[in-house]
Write a protein that binds this DNA or RNA. Structure first.
Length: 111
RNA sequence: UGAGUGGGAUAAACAGCUGCGGAUGCAGUGCCGAGAGGCCGCACCCGAGGAAAGUCCGGGCUCCGCAGGGCAAGGAUAACGGCUAACGGCCGCCGGGGGUGACCCCAGGGAAAGUGCAACAGAGAUAUACCGCCUGCUUUGCAGGCAAGGGUGGAAAGGCGAGGUAAGAGCUCACCGGCGCAGUGGAGACAUUGCGGCCAUGUAAACCCUAUCCGGAGCAACGCCUCACAGAAGUGUAUUCAUCUGCCCGAUGGCUUCACGAGGCGGCACUGAGCAGUACCGGCAACGGGCUGCCAAGAUAGAUGGCUGUUCACGACAGAACCCGGCUUAUCGUCUCACUCAUAAA
RNA sequence: GCGGAUAUGGCGGAAUUGGCAGACGCGUACGGUUCAGGUCCGUAUGAAAGCAAUUUCAUGCAGGUUCAAGUCCUGUUAUCCGCA
């Protein structure tokens, strides 16, 4: 039985940026790395480049919603970080879902 | 009808399913953790803004010694009267400026307390005599008088007209302006009337002077708890040191400097300078009082998303983070109230 | 949360107490020197209008004070930095 944990520490994010594999599309960038906990751990990055607070919140919500609908089909034991890009707050969540699916399949995390 | 001025309200709406955060009630005392603590089920309710923003002011709250005295230094404000917990805010009013008008704008104290600066131009810039005008003489000029006219400049010794004179000049007079004194009105700024009388430019968003006000730091404040650690250097009992800066006095403390890990809870959402309404009372108004109703975000990587359907004007600026009162800035529109001008009609 | 700094041609970077802004260097273009290139020397170089003389607009942006603002004041935008 695996559970979903939110990444909070800056350390974890740094480790993923440095050592994780990355997959990119126009709306989202995904960093993937195996961990030994047996759980799925994920985090979302929305930098100030995206825009003001409203746009950053919007990006985060869309990504979280896409992740929620896909999370049942994930293999356990991975750390994931999703980075929003400039376009992200202006697209619909199904677009994010599509590219997230594609990137996770490429990474081999998807069942 | 057109053009405009000043306020106010609103911030797409409705339905269904699902997802997220929180309060309350009920229940197992089940699960996780070394511990402080945390998590899980069901029901029902609530869940961003007019600016939540900028952090420009004023408070509350907390700690620093509960906040002391004097002189400095620094900062803020600036007609007058009021409102307010307070304010650099608001209301009223005065003065000045703009607009045909509704109305709008003004850092709006002091330049005879002192200092500085005013480039270039110009004869001369706080002082003067270049061209001039007038008189006299020994007449290509010299001496004396004058400051009206010319020219320069942002600014040239109140303005304009008349009298006056050798030529001129507030030298005299009328009007205007400004200054001083007195009277009247007003709570006051001030207005107005009378008399006297006319030498001193501008700049204080230059230094400065006057009046009033200001202790510092901030919720990563601060308090409590759990596990871990209990170290190194310096001062030597008060003439030193610390408490926002300097000096003096006073007070308190006994230590000061460096090092000081990981985590949890409270603070924190609460009856509060509270919010909404009002055919009520006082006040021109800001506002105060009365009455009625309500107590409905509270996260901690940070809650509002997704899908479906319908409608329209097709949706701007934009996300609470300790809490209030303002100011400023951003903003697609829609509705509404009062008023002004023009035209037409009555 | 608290606090500070900066913004000037294509680039770097001057401009004393407010008083002629675009100094100076780099770059670019043209010309000269050379058989050729480099070096070196000279001229031009913010934008718009105009044949030209010249005029207007230009110090991040919007206002204000002043006779006069890159400089002083207020608001605002962007960038950078410090402390906890």
């Amino acid at each position: 039985m695996s559970e979903i944990i939110t990444l909070t520490r800056n350390n974890d994010f740094r480790r993923l940026y440095a050592k994780g594999k990355s997959f990119a599309s126009g709306v989202i960038v995904t960093y993937v790395m195996k961990n030994r906990t047996g759980n799925i751990r994920f985090g979302i990055t929305t930098s100030k480049k995206i825009g003001k607070a409203v746009l950053r919140n919007r990006s985060r919500r869309i990504i979280r919603e896409a992740f929620r609908s896909i999370s049942a089909d994930l293999k356990p034991g991975y750390d994931l970080v999703f980075v929003a890009r400039g376009k992200t707050p202006y697209v619909k969540s199904c677009d994010v879902l599509r590219s997230m699916k594609k990137e996770l399949k490429e990474a081999g995390v998807l069942n």
